[in-house]
Structures are given as structure tokens and as C-alpha cells.
Amino acid sequence: MKKYWAIFTTQLTNRLAYAGDLAAQSLSIVIFMWIFMQLWRATYRAMGTDEISGLTLRQTLWYLMLAETIILSKPRISRTISEAVKDGSIAYMLNKPYNFLLYHMSVGLGDYLTAMIFNLLSGSIIAWLLVGPPPDPRGWPLVLAAMLLGWLIDFCFTALIGLAAFVTEEVSAFEWIYQKMLFILGGMLIPLDFFPQWLRSIAQALPFAYTIYGPARLFVEPDLARFATLLAGQIIWLGAMGLVVTLMFRRSISWLTINGG
């Protein structure tokens, strides 16, 4: 495990060399938050209530801040892997004594955390200015753990999409579909609480909600029971998806031929 930790920290250094770049990128969350604010303030006003499906405007905005942070900080694993498959550079990573997937996971985690720090900072500042202080800080460590597990599930999906390049060469269609799943069924655009009950049940049974909705909802209303349920679901999905992506990777390796060279 030591080597993956080293890969992770090297990627942290690598990314922090361009801290200015990361800070600039995190400005987009400010714009999104401002748009969400206009949208939801109008909605709450039009409905004449302080609460929609148990969430206040303040909670909704903080929920969206965390959901946006998760989505905007995600590195493009599927792009990285599919490019490596297409140009053959995947092969050159196989003759190093590390596991290819764990390598990308370590690098990806470095990317995710660095981007996350900046997005959280920018997002929190704007959210605070718009709707007031963040939810109970005692929940934050739990949220962080849930975000990490959620990201690991997301890693499995995006790595799987990247590896699909072995079969289909072009993977942007899968990327697009997965992203829309996260946006809608994952609860990035609208908290799942606002969905009709039947759609909400479907969405909560699917893995996408464990990446975004789960951590974001825990953030605005932290409690241990919610965390325990979330954790159990995340571990089950992570186990299942981890197995699928590992099997897919093994299969891919035996198909391996190098394009060019």
C-alpha cells in the first residue's frame, strides 16, 4: 500500500504546483451557486413555504454546494483511461510493479482532493454569503468519509467506461449517459427529496445516489443513523462495482494489443 500512498502524494504535489489554476477553476462553482440561488429563492417564494420536502432554502443551497463540489472536483478518469487504451500507453504502465487500476485510483484521488479543497472553499464562501452559515460542523468528518467512498464508487464506473475503449474505441457516449445519470438520478441538479415518491425510490436504489445525494444530504442533516445506512449502501455498491471493474480489467489485458509502435 505504501507505493500507492507515494503515488497519491506525488500527484498532490504535482497538482499543487498549479494552485493558481485550481483556484481559477473553482470560480465556476461560484457562478453555479449564484444561479441556483436565483432559481430556488424564486421557487420557495412562489410556493409560499419555508420548507419543501423537509428542506429549507438554506439547506437546499448548502446541499447543492456539496453536490456541485463533488461533480466539479471529479477527475476525468474515463477520459484518461480510454486515451491510454487508444494510444497504447496503457501497455507501458503494465511493466511497472503496480496495479494499473490502483495506480489510477491513487492519481485520481490526488486530483479529486486538490480540486475539492478549492471548490469547497469557493463554494462555502458564496453559500455563506447567500444563505448564512453551513450545517452542523460535527457532521463534516462523516461527510468527508462518505464523499471518499462515493468517489470510489464513481471511480469504478468511470474506470469501467474508460476500459470499454478496448471494445468500442470511442467512449464519449457512455460518459455522457453516466454524467446525466449523476445529474438527475444522483441528485446533483435537484435533491432527490423533491422527486415524486416512486422516482425517488428508484433513484435511491441506484448507485448514482451514493456518490452525490448521500454525502450531500448527510451534510445538511447529519445524524449517525443516516450515516450508517449510507455507509452500508456505499460498501455494498463499492464491492459490487469493484469486482466488475477488476474482472473487466483482467479481461481487457488479455485482449491487449498496442495500436501503433
Binding site: K2, W5, A6, I7, T10, P97
Partner: peptide
């Protein structure tokens, strides 16, 4: 190339040290 492009080579050397245990 196997050296990390944006980092000084010494960082990749140190990383390889870890990777090769």
C-alpha cells in the same frame, strides 16, 4: 517518457523508489 512531466525528476526517482519497494 516515464518521468512526470511537471515535476522535477528527483520526485519521480523518489516515487520509483517506493514503487520498486
Amino acid at each position: 517518457p516515464q518521468l512526470w512531466y511537471h515535476l522535477p525528476a528527483i520526485d519521480t526517482f523518489a516515487l520509483f523508489g517506493k514503487i520498486y519497494e
